[in-house]
């Protein structure tokens, strides 16, 4: 999308009508140099282990994705039917670039890949997600993560 003009009209109207939060203040945390950073991914694609139940509509929960979880063990249960899943069907990295991150760590481009990554349901109202943000941040700090890539779908 994406370029707005490329989005089907019905979806575009919904997307643009979403009340996006204007977060208070202007937070800024300066991380270590990239080559020393431990990096995690937070995806809003509603990814989870295949053995787990789907994300419910409107849920404010988060799920943990171990870095070691194989693509064959991951399911996507986002409620929206108005985004492309064809690319993800070929390659999960187009939404959740865990393999690219591992390659970068192997080459020294980043310090390391976090052992755990995080997933939420992107269509949920962010105003309800403070508790999940607390929970995710606490885990990130506990694991010594220096920076997070926020990846929507």
């Amino acid at each position: 999308m994406a370029r707005l003009e490329d989005i089907p009209q019905a979806t575009r109207e919904v997307v643009l009508a979403l009340a996006m939060p204007e977060l208070p203040g202007q937070p800024w945390v300066q991380p270590k140099p990239l080559a020393q950073c431990r990096i995690a991914i937070l995806t809003s694609a509603a990814l989870h282990r295949r053995s787990e139940m789907p994300f419910a509509a409107g849920t404010a929960e988060f799920r943990e994705l171990p870095a070691s979880l194989a693509a064959s063990e991951i399911a996507m249960s986002h409620i929206s039917i108005n985004y492309d899943r064809v690319g993800y069907a070929r390659d999960i990295n187009v939404a959740y670039p865990i393999d690219r991150l591992k390659e970068l760590a192997g080459e020294g481009g980043i310090g390391s890949v976090a052992a755990t990554h995080y997933s939420v349901m992107g269509s949920t109202d962010p105003a309800t997600m403070a508790e999940s943000a607390d929970g995710i941040t606490a885990r990130l700090k506990q694991e010594g993560v220096d920076a997070v890539i926020l990846a929507p779908v």
Binding site: M1, A2, L4, V15, L16, L23, P24, G25, P27, W28, V29, Q30, P31, L42, P126, M129, A130, A133, D134, I136, T137, L140, K141, V145, D146, A147, V148, I149, L150, A151, P152, V153
Partner: peptide, 15 residues
């Protein structure tokens, strides 16, 4: 929401 809790972030934006 994560950065204001103390961890640096970078967002990919589609819209």
């Amino acid at each position: 929401m994560i950065e204001s809790r103390g961890v640096a972030t970078v967002a990919i934006g589609l819209v």
